[in-house]
């Protein structure tokens, strides 16, 4: 692990010192989690209510401003939370150079999916 031999064990434990950040991401993960509680329950309830319904019913549901707004908020919170959560998991288990590649891929992927989801959602009321 160590590239340069460090002189003392304390030196090793202190390493480069504290980066003095991390609280922001921690808060972002909690905030997105709190937002997701009502949003996902709304989504689950709506999907159950839509069981067995056709495209027209689906469009009618998503067309309502309330559903459109909730869906967009859900997509934002969901993919924000997903990106943060996956990043922590990668940092925990991946210790090679692949780590940064994996984190970047996760972040870009989540961003792309969120945008795709939002565009699809908006097309229904505006183009549908």
């Amino acid at each position: 692990m160590r590239k340069v031999p460090t002189p003392t064990p304390l030196n090793h434990a202190l390493a480069l010192g504290s980066s003095r950040k991390g609280a922001g991401e921690w808060w972002a993960e909690r905030l997105s989690a709190i937002a997701l509680i009502p949003l996902t329950i709304w989504f689950a309830a709506s999907v159950i209510a839509l069981t067995g319904s056709d495209h027209a019913a689906f469009v009618a549901w998503l067309k309502t401003p309330f559903a459109t707004i909730c869906m967009i908020l859900l997509l934002i919170a969901l993919f924000h939370h997903t990106a943060l959560g996956l990043q922590v998991i990668i940092e925990d288990y991946v210790h090679s150079g692949a780590k940064f590649a994996a984190i970047i891929a996760t972040r870009l992927g989540c961003f792309a999916l969120a945008v795709a989801g939002i565009v699809a959602t908006l097309r229904i009321p505006f183009a549908g």
């Binding site: 504290s18 980066s19 950040k21 991390g22």
Partner: peptide, 13 residues
């Protein structure tokens, strides 16, 4: 301040 770090403290899950 010395604790605030994604690894030092925030690796506690």
């Amino acid at each position: 301040d010395d604790l605030e770090d994604p690894f030092r403290l925030y690796r506690c899950h």
